[in-house]
């Protein structure tokens, strides 16, 4: 029963697992780059959720065909495209911040940075 549910909703399980990993990376890791990696995992887990939610079983890519067919919902994909762009930009900003921080303090360890900035 439980197993069945896990298999039926495996996409949720995956995205939540990824989300937790990402969240841990953002909060738990002290290295700024690892934080950024965590951030990306966190964001992409949500994108996975969107995309998997759009799936229609047996559906095909939403390209107009001659004969009628079942399409998956294209809207979430479009939305996530935008979200990916946002995520990439965030990552870019994050990375350039990390570079600046590294040049300022010579380290990427958060604790050390906090100590140095006192």
């Amino acid at each position: 029963m439980v197993l069945e549910m896990i298999f039926a909703k495996y996409n949720y399980i995956i995205y939540i697992t990824l989300m937790t990993i990402g969240f841990y990376g953002m909060i738990g890791k002290r290295n700024l780059i690892k934080k950024l990696i965590g951030m990306s995992i966190f964001q992409y887990s949500i994108f996975l959720f969107y995309v998997s939610a759009a799936d229609v079983s047996g559906g095909t890519a939403p390209i107009l065909l001659k004969e009628p067919a079942v399409y998956v919902n294209p809207l979430p994909h479009v939305l996530i495209l935008t979200a990916i762009v946002v995520a990439v930009s965030t990552l870019a900003v994050g990375l350039s911040l990390v570079i600046r921080i590294y040049r300022e303090y010579g380290t990427l360890d958060e604790d050390k940075i906090l100590e140095l900035s006192k």
């Binding site: 953002m26 951030m39 966190f42 900003v93 994050g94 300022e104 900035s117």
Partner: peptide
């Protein structure tokens, strides 16, 4: 930069 980074993590 560090302030901005922390803000970015929270903001994200």
């Amino acid at each position: 930069a560090m302030a901005s980074f922390n803000y970015m993590i929270m903001g994200t």
